[in-house]
């Protein structure tokens, strides 16, 4: 597969390490989250047949974490973003 890195252009997926569901970005707020939220965060994942947002680490490249939207049925990749930008857009900061 080819992942179109937002900064480096098309790169072979062999350069990346896969971590799965990008919902891992949505770490619960330790001040307010209920135990159920932590359980869901640590253990529950959707088994998507279609477009899925995934985290890929460019270990063989610039060490960026990327959020890759990939169709799990066709491997078509429709968008790629720097995870840091995605996290910021979700309101994550320090």
């Amino acid at each position: 597969m080819i992942i179109n890195h937002p900064l480096l252009g098309p790169r072979d997926s062999a350069e990346f390490v896969y971590m799965g569901d990008a919902s891992l970005i949505d770490r619960p707020d330790p001040d307010t989250a209920a135990p159920e939220d932590w359980h869901a965060y640590a253990y529950l994942r959707e088994n998507v047949a279609g477009d899925m947002q995934e985290l890929w680490f460019h270990e063989g490249g610039d060490r960026s974490w990327l959020v890759v939207t990939r169709n799990t049925l066709t491997h078509e990749i429709s968008s790629v973003a720097l995870a840091r930008d995605v996290a910021r857009a979700k309101g994550r900061s320090k």
Partner: peptide
């Protein structure tokens, strides 16, 4: 390698403004 990757995850994905 795994710890480095994890630390980058924490830095970029969880606390991007640190």
């Amino acid at each position: 390698a795994k710890v480095y990757q994890h630390m980058e995850f924490v830095r970029q994905c969880l606390f991007p403004d640190m």
